[in-house]
């Protein structure tokens, strides 16, 4: 509507200004309006085929099914995000059935099943689930490299450009931590079972990108929201 209005107004105003009013600056204003109008039309036509409400329903359905599974099994452990090289082609989250705190020793490829063994001990069992972050990795044109700039660029592309879930993302990388600050997040952390295990969808996306970039398992250590910003700390496991 805005685009068509600007195009129409520009198309009427530009020749009127040039031939009748005889003003070059006003003609330029008309031409600028046409350019901006076409841009608005182009952007409006790129809106997703599925409505935001339908997407929300599907996200909630998936989250509630996973939450029901976690609650039924009584799992409260934080998930470990694995890169695609350790799974069957796309990154997934692993929720240990027993919290032993030494999940760091995952080194081999985990089989592509729901219930998996990640270690040599009898209780080294976990369930592997697909998260919003796992799916989004496929949307990246190239796999990000192991630097903070590349992780930040990939996170900005997905969270800001593709999904429009945040205004901006800043990532800092240290030896065993990834610190991310997300400005204007549209999905906040809630104290629910699903988020306590797998993190909020934004943290999940950041964790999936980070583990894929670093090629190492990653765990969401901390997540808090204050003054319009989400601060997410990811622990890099080796």
């Amino acid at each position: 509507m805005l685009g068509s209005g600007l195009c129409l107004a520009g198309a009427i105003f530009a020749p009127l200004s040039y031939f009748i009013i005889d003003s070059v600056p006003l003609t330029a204003v008309g031409i600028s309006a046409i350019i901006i109008g076409f841009t608005c039309i182009a952007l409006a036509n790129t809106r997703p085929y599925i409505s935001a409400e339908a997407c929300e329903v599907m996200l909630k359905t998936g989250m509630e099914n996973t939450a029901a599974l976690l609650e039924e099994l009584g799992l409260r452990n934080k998930a470990v995000y694995l890169p695609s090289t350790m799974r069957d082609g796309h990154p997934q989250a692993l929720i240990p059935l027993v919290d032993k705190g030494d999940i760091q020793r995952i080194s081999q490829k985990i089989p592509g099943r729901l219930i998996v063994r990640y270690g040599v001990n009898i209780d080294d069992m976990a369930i592997a689930v697909t998260t919003p972050g796992s799916i989004n990795i496929d949307m990246l044109e190239t796999k990000p490299g192991p630097t903070s700039t590349e992780i930040e660029t990939a996170a900005t592309y997905i969270l800001t450009g593709l999904l429009d879930l945040a205004n901006s993302v800043t990532v800092n990388l240290s030896d065993s931590q990834v610190n991310a600050e997300v400005s204007g997040p549209r999905l906040h952390y809630e104290d629910i079972w699903y988020y306590r295990c797998l993190g909020s969808p934004i943290a999940s996306i950041l964790a999936a990108i980070s583990c894929e970039a670093l090629g190492k398992p990653v765990r969401i250590q901390e997540e808090d929201y204050s003054k319009g910003k989400s601060r997410i700390i990811l622990e890099v496991l080796s």
């Binding site: 350019i35 076409f38 841009t39 182009a42 952007l43 036509n45 790129t46 660029t153 900005t156 592309y157 800001t160 450009g161 593709l162």
Partner: peptide
């Protein structure tokens, strides 16, 4: 540069 691919394609045409 980080707009979604469909938006980018449309903007690249313009």
């Amino acid at each position: 540069a980080y707009l979604n691919p469909r938006a980018r394609r449309a903007l690249n045409t313009i």
